[in-house]
């Protein structure tokens, strides 16, 4: 189990670096899809099958297709352009980000890290009811208000995208 996790983790990290360093944006997008797949796998291992499914369908599917679509629409042929142009500010950015990572990682790996109260859904209960059933129940009972609001947000985003992206005739 743990070995599988390490494999997924390693692949996702390699793909993420790919996003960072690939010269061609389309390659970057494909690398990102790889990362998303690996994360989906990790979600399955964490008993979140429903999230894993929408991760693959929505993220790796819909959203990344949208990215690729826009990339091809705006196909800029600038092959000579390097992915990362190094200068002092970029070096500083690397140092700062490294600092952030080391800080956060040291916090997480601290054995004294204390967790909050346990919730009401231990693994057995989830397996008994079923992960998807449980999410469905929660969405339509406890989280029904955010659920409705998020639907309006989607509507707004769709209209907004159409308004912003359409050509202006004047």
């Amino acid at each position: 189990m743990l070995t599988l996790f390490y494999i997924f983790a390693a692949i996702s990290i390699i793909c993420a670096f790919g996003v960072l360093f690939m010269r061609n944006p389309i390659h970057c997008a494909l690398m990102l899809v790889g990362t998303f797949f690996c994360l989906g796998g990790i979600y399955v291992m964490l008993n979140a099958e429903f999230v894993a499914v929408i991760q693959v369908l929505v993220y790796a599917g819909a959203i990344m297709v949208l990215f690729l679509f826009v990339l091809m629409l705006l196909s800029t042929n600038e092959p000579s352009q390097v992915a990362v142009k190094w200068d002092a500010a970029k070096m500083l950015a690397v140092i700062i980000t490294g600092g952030i990572f080391i800080q956060v990682a040291s916090i997480f790996s601290d054995s004294a890290l204390t967790l909050g109260e346990k919730g009401n859904y231990p693994l057995e209960k989830i397996e008994e009811i079923g992960s998807i059933t449980l999410i469905g129940q929660l969405l339509f009972t406890e989280y029904v208000l955010p659920f409705e609001i998020i639907s309006i947000l989607l509507l707004v985003a769709v209209i907004g995208a159409v308004v912003i992206a359409k050509r202006r005739f004047n």
Binding site: A89, T97, G99
Partner: peptide, 20 residues
Amino acid sequence: MQTYALIFAIGTLTVIWYIF
């Protein structure tokens, strides 16, 4: 935008370093 992001990251690092 990237300059702003860099300054933002410096701020974040400072805050994290200060809190923990």
